[in-house]
């Protein structure tokens, strides 16, 4: 997802929030530079989210729908609506696949 503008960093509290409908398990989430490191204790897997994916994930965790996330991303990253929504849907699909978001947050 192209952008040369910095995202607003989310607070640790934002990062730790669970989205509505999420299965209850504790990811360990850390901000590292502009990126996020997510450790899934169920699978002992460590994932790295680049800054765009990290922003999508934070907003989804805060309960925003993809359309709302796209709107936010459009404002922050100065991209057009269609591209923002496409990128957000791609990112959320991948995050759901990785079980970092519950399936219900897709739409």
């Amino acid at each position: 997802m192209p952008s040369n503008r910095r995202c607003e960093p989310a607070s640790e509290a934002d990062v730790a929030a669970q989205p509505a409908g999420a299965t209850a398990h504790a990811w360990s989430v850390h901000e590292l530079g502009d990126e996020l490191i997510v450790f899934d204790p169920r699978t002992d897997t460590t994932l790295r989210l680049n800054r765009t994916a990290a922003r999508v994930w934070r907003l989804a965790m805060a309960g925003l729908r993809p359309v709302q996330i796209a709107e936010q991303m459009r404002r922050e990253f100065d991209v057009d609506d269609a591209r923002a929504l496409g990128d957000v849907l791609t990112a959320t699909d991948r995050l759901i696949e990785l079980q970092l978001l519950p399936g219900g947050s897709q739409r």
Binding site: L32, G33, I37, T46, R48
Partner: peptide
């Protein structure tokens, strides 16, 4: 980036688990 370094160090760890 430090996040990339983290994943590499984890892979090179003898006792990460």
């Amino acid at each position: 980036l430090p996040a990339e370094a983290l994943l590499r160090l984890e892979r090179l760890s003898f006792n990460f688990l």
